[in-house]
């Protein structure tokens, strides 16, 4: 398959970040959709979103043409990785499969260098973005309902997903921060995330 598809993997923690993780993927997809991209956003099928703290994956695929690989379960080669909880860097090889020149977005109060100390394969990264998303927006209400193939009828992007995706749009050219603001519930949070993100080029 030679199709150019931009892959995003979002790592969140079970139960208390399940919904926000999904919202981050939906925000990116909806914003890219507004920008005329073909999009796909979905939850990992094998993860266990109903167990507290378990690392979860949410995915996005963005492309300029219709995406052929719709059914492939996981993003094997993510160009962008988002970490909703900084401690996940110790638990998972989050950059697995990343092609050289990728980006990493981390929700943390720490500095990029403190996070990089826990990333052995940082040569894959073109840049790392740290943003205190939890400080900007409190975690939104926990939703136990939406995990299993459910949908969001409530507003998307009210919690930490908004500043995180805002920060991501600083290094990702597949979606524009203006479009993220349009589709997110917490518009202020998106802008604050964008403005306060610390970007370190590698």
């Amino acid at each position: 398959m030679s199709q150019e598809v931009y892959e995003v993997t979002i790592w969140a923690r079970g139960v208390f970040q399940d919904m926000e993780g999904r919202h981050a993927s939906l925000l990116m997809a909806n914003a890219a959709d507004l920008g005329g991209k073909f999009v796909q956003a979905w939850d990992d099928y094998a993860d266990l979103p109903d167990r507290v703290g378990v690392p979860l994956r949410k995915y996005v695929r963005l492309s300029d043409e219709e995406i052929e690989m719709r059914f492939v379960y996981v993003n094997n080669n993510p160009n962008l990785v988002v970490i909703m909880d900084d401690t996940i860097v110790k638990g998972m090889n989050i950059l697995r499969g990343m092609p050289k020149g990728g980006s990493l977005i981390v929700n943390t109060r720490r500095t990029p260098d403190e996070i990089l100390a826990f990333i052995p394969n940082k040569e894959l990264l073109a840049n790392i973005v740290c943003v205190d998303a939890s400080g900007i927006a409190a975690d939104a209400a926990i939703d136990f309902m939406g995990s299993e193939g459910g949908v969001e009828v409530a507003s998307v992007g009210a919690g930490i997903s908004a500043p995180l995706v805002g920060a991501a749009s600083k290094v990702c050219d597949m979606f524009d921060v203006k479009n993220v603001v349009k589709v997110a519930a917490n518009k202020d949070g998106v802008q604050k995330g964008f403005d306060s993100a610390q970007v370190k080029a590698l």
Binding site: D47, D86, T87, K90, M92, R96
Partner: peptide, 17 residues
């Protein structure tokens, strides 16, 4: 204590499951 205070206890799995 927050996990990032410690350099040890790294699991770094390749896949969650």
């Amino acid at each position: 204590v927050n996990e990032l205070e410690f350099p040890d206890g790294v699991v770094r799995l390749e896949k969650p499951f």
